[in-house]
Simulated scan of single mutants.
Amino acid sequence: MHLALFDLDHTLLPIDSDYEWGQFLCRHGIVDAEQFGRRNADFFAQYQAGTLDPVEYLEFALGTLAAIPPQQLQALREQYMEEVILPVLHPAAVRLLRQHQDKGDLTAIITATNRFVTEPIAAALGVPHLLAAEPERDASGNITGKLSGVPTSGKGKVTHLQHWLAAQNKQLADFASSHFYSDSHNDIPLLDVVTHPVATNPNAKLQQYAAAKGWPQITLFEKQ
């Protein structure tokens, strides 16, 4: 069997789904646009620079989810999918996914963004396996605002992948080949351990690293 892993934001999507979720909440008056927007933009800049504290950011994002009544939260997510995500799904990204799926590869999205935001996106892309930051939930199943486990970013992506494979009695070495597609230098720890790393719509730091390593670089679309 072969394994194909995909980052989500700016790799399969031309946008950052987490940042755009925050902007969506601002536009619809769910959060204070000035205060939230400023913090959201600061965190996004830190992510791009590679200086983001993932736990601090995730608990900011998850705390926002926890403050919204659950029924309203579900309705907002459906509206977000219709307004923001579905219009930007790109045929080139879908074709790449289908190429691997049609060959029978085990296919998964592994993203630093939380599961609440990304689960319907993975479903819309037709990818059944999602490794994402997990919100802590209370006894009623409601999001508490805390992170459960470790973030799915940096070396954490490797950790989550290992745990996911172990649950299936597998390890990375069991696969004849393993691809990982990502746009970001933040994903170098996972790119370094697969057999076929592919810099996809890469940022400048990943472009430089990939060129030094001789990795293939592809462009599916222009980022927004």
Rank of each mutant, 00 (worst) to 15 (best):
P87C: 00
G141V: 05
A124I: 02
L73A: 11
P69D: 10
E56H: 06
A133C: 14
Q72A: 15
P128C: 02
V55K: 00
L106S: 09
A132E: 06
P69N: 13
L62E: 08
V84W: 12
A108P: 07
T107Y: 02
H129A: 11
D102Q: 14
H100M: 09
P91H: 05
T111V: 08
F60G: 00
Y80M: 05
A75F: 04
A108Y: 07
H129T: 15
L58P: 01
E78R: 10
A139K: 14
D102G: 12
V84E: 13
I68V: 14
H100R: 05
D138R: 04
R95A: 14
L76C: 00
Y80N: 03
I109V: 13
V94H: 13
P135M: 05
A61E: 04
D105L: 00
A93Y: 14
A92F: 14
P69S: 07
T118R: 05
G104M: 12
L96E: 12
A133W: 13
V117N: 11
A124F: 03
P120I: 10
P120K: 08
E82V: 06
L65D: 12
A67I: 12
Y80C: 04
Y80L: 05
V55Q: 02
P135C: 05
A67P: 09
K103P: 00
L130T: 02
L125Y: 02
P91V: 06
L62I: 11
A66P: 02
R77L: 09
V84M: 14
L86S: 07
P91E: 08
A92E: 11
P70I: 03
R95T: 11
D53N: 11
T107R: 10
H129F: 15
I68Q: 08
A92L: 00
I85K: 11
P128G: 03
P91L: 09
N114L: 05
A124E: 08
F116L: 10
T113D: 04
R95G: 02
E134R: 13
F116Q: 12
R137E: 13
L96K: 13
N114H: 14
T113P: 05
E59T: 08
E78S: 02
G141Y: 05
A108G: 03
P69K: 11
H129N: 12
T113R: 11
Y80H: 08
L52F: 03
V127L: 01
E56A: 06
Q99G: 09
P70M: 09
P70V: 10
R95N: 10
L130K: 07
Y57T: 00
A122V: 04
P91T: 13
Q74C: 04
P135L: 02
